Simulated scan of single mutants.
Amino acid sequence: MTQSYKEELIVVSGAATGIGAATAHELASMGYHVLAGVRTNHEADAIRAAGIEPITLDITVPKHIEALAKRIANDPEQRPLRALINNAGIEINAPVEVLPLEQWREQFEVNLFGHIAVIQLLLPFLRQSRGRIVNISSVGGVAALPIFGAYAGTKFALEAASDSLRREVAAQGVQVVVVQPGGVATEMAAHSGAISLELADKMNAEHQRLYGDLVKSTVASNAAFLKRAVPAAKAGAKIAKVTTAARPRTRYTLGKDAAFIIPLARFLPARLMDKMLSASHRSQRNTSAR
């Protein structure tokens, strides 16, 4: 990566809060000019700072992505686009049978198709600068927990798309890196459990019988897990480091939990992994019942 940090742009989607905001601030402190994707004026006012320029960017809205591309093309200082960090995302968890199809589609629109749309329009800039794409995946992109089917599905797909893209653009001088966070203390993570319980309350009697305890134990287990989550600032610092590393790896885990779970999911037989998760949920149900 070039050393002329102040002469380069970096785009961060989903920069209003959490990992995205922390990454934007870290990169700005390093001297980059960050185009920080937000969706509202309130979010823009909250993130605006030295080196951080809020950009209205709902990645499911083509006009927003087109406006971002024009902003880069017409940069008054003719700064190159050094990196694109695809961080925007949503998480709505419920059993596969229960989650409405529109919420499956919504998650794929944001967590996958929106990122692809941004990549397609910004790749020419990155090709010109020999820049980098950093896709924020998840431990859920390797290990799919119960009730996480839709969210994990989007991340599995992002992992596959990242592999294909990396192999397609390597000869063009563009690098593609995947970051796989485990538990990170963010607003999205904090609210996901409440959303799951709200959806569970709307299940019919048969679905309550089949899945009620599973949803409650999974939410409780995740809540306990998040008490040991990586702070967003620490996650943002690592992503900024990955984004600017001279010789990046193709993948990075983020957090001790991801570093532990991802190898297990890759190398343990699936049935053994199933038994381990089932035992964990039984333990959580017993703890919650006390």
Rank of each mutant, 00 (worst) to 15 (best):
D45F: 10
L254H: 07
I85E: 08
F156K: 02
E206H: 14
L84F: 11
S164W: 05
H115D: 03
M276N: 08
F148H: 12
I65N: 00
V178F: 00
E97H: 08
F113W: 13
L35R: 04
E43V: 02
R228G: 11
I195D: 09
A259Y: 00
V142M: 10
R249Y: 08
V178C: 15
A160H: 09
N93L: 12
A160L: 08
D75P: 05
G141A: 07
L9A: 02
G89Y: 06
G37R: 07
Q172G: 06
F260L: 14
I55P: 06
A88Q: 05
Q3N: 15
S129W: 00
S278A: 14
G212K: 02
Q120A: 13
A170S: 15
Y252E: 01
G236M: 01
S278F: 15
N204I: 03
H33S: 12
D213T: 11
P95R: 07
R130E: 10
A157K: 06
F225P: 06
G182M: 07
G212I: 05
K238T: 09
R127W: 01
N74C: 11
G153M: 00
K227D: 14
V142S: 10
R282A: 15
G236R: 03
G131F: 01
M276V: 10
V230P: 02
V178D: 07
Q107K: 07
E187I: 14
T253V: 13
A229V: 00
L35S: 03
A152N: 06
P95L: 00
D45S: 15
V169H: 03
L268A: 10
A16E: 04
A50C: 10
L272A: 14
S162F: 03
A237Y: 01
R127Y: 01
I147F: 09
K63P: 08
S217H: 06
R79M: 12
L35M: 11
G212V: 07
A235P: 01
A258K: 04
I65H: 05
E168M: 08
R266Y: 11
I65D: 05
A200S: 08
A223N: 11
E77K: 11
V118R: 03
L35T: 03
P181H: 00
S164Y: 11
I133G: 05
L112K: 00
V184H: 00
G20E: 04
T250N: 11
E77F: 10
T56Q: 13
T253S: 12
A229R: 06
Q120T: 12
E168V: 02
E109K: 10
N74M: 11
L99M: 00
E168N: 04
A73G: 10
L226P: 07
D75L: 02
R79V: 08
H33T: 12
V96T: 14
N41E: 14
L121P: 00
S217I: 03
S4Q: 15
A205Q: 11
I116C: 08
A224P: 03
V12E: 04
Q107W: 05
L199V: 05
I92S: 03
R271K: 12
V179G: 06
T243R: 01
S137H: 04
T287Y: 13
A117R: 09
D274H: 12
I136L: 14
A94H: 06
I65C: 05
A117W: 01
I92G: 04
L121N: 13
K63E: 15
L197K: 10
P100W: 04
R209F: 10
T17G: 02
H191D: 15
E198Y: 02
F225S: 15
A83W: 02
N41C: 07
E106R: 15
R132Q: 06
S192H: 08
K216Q: 14
W104K: 02
E109Y: 07
